[in-house]
């Protein structure tokens, strides 16, 4: 049964090995995480003026002071500040993919109420994105407000984080004191 020319096959087989990779001693490239969000900036403005709060990854505490009886417009911005010389704004990406994102302030306290602002961006179904909200400081006290950036939420309305589903891209506790 002379089916095969073995010499030919042997050569073919060794040819397969000719692409053996040579090991190198090069320095592996440094990776700057591109999707990372490590700076959050919250701008609040009211009739009394405006204030900017910045949280950087590694900061232990994020506190905010409000005055009771005042309405605030709160705008949140996300940044990748891995490279201090090239801080990248993440908001444009969130707005561009508005259908897959939602910004939610979980508030279970009675010292303030949070509603979406008229200037807020909307997704393709007309749901507010949550980047801009109106906060009304109702009465004095302190509470923790939890900021979420949710990726691919199941729904865009709810009162607690569980209502939204999806994955958490940002979770930040804000200690709010109303005076």
């Amino acid at each position: 049964m002379k089916l095969f020319n073995y010499t030919k096959y042997t050569l073919l087989f060794f040819a397969l090995f000719s692409f053996v990779q040579c090991s190198d001693d090069e320095t592996p490239e440094l990776i700057n995480e591109e999707e990372e969000i490590n700076r959050i900036v919250i701008d609040i403005s009211s009739e009394n003026g405006s204030n900017t709060y910045t949280w950087n990854e590694g900061d232990s505490n994020f506190a905010m002071q409000l005055n009771s009886g005042i309405n605030y417009t709160v705008a949140v911005s996300f940044y990748n500040a891995s490279d201090p010389n090239d801080v990248e704004a993440i908001n444009p990406e969130v707005i561009e993919e508005a259908d897959e994102h939602h910004v939610f302030f979980e508030n279970s306290s009675s010292i303030l109420t949070i509603n979406s602002a008229s200037s807020d961006q909307q997704d393709s179904s007309g749901n507010p994105l949550g980047l801009k909200t109106t906060w009304t400081a109702e009465r004095a006290g302190s509470a923790t407000i939890r900021l979420f950036l949710i990726h691919e939420p199941n729904t865009k309305s709810g009162n607690t984080r569980s209502d939204f589903g999806g994955e958490t891209d940002v979770q930040l506790d804000i200690n709010v004191t109303v005076e």
């Binding site: 042997t10 087989f13 397969l16 990726h151 984080r161 569980s162 994955e167 958490t168 891209d169 979770q171």
Partner: peptide, 28 residues
């Protein structure tokens, strides 16, 4: 002598819901 070559390729999906962002997502 004996010689052999084997090639194998796979593409495997992982349950979509098993990808979570943080422990809160896991707890939920």
């Amino acid at each position: 002598w004996q010689a052999s070559y084997r090639w194998y390729q796979t593409r495997v999906g992982i349950l979509r819901s098993a990808h979570v962002g943080n422990v809160g997502d896991l707890a939920r």
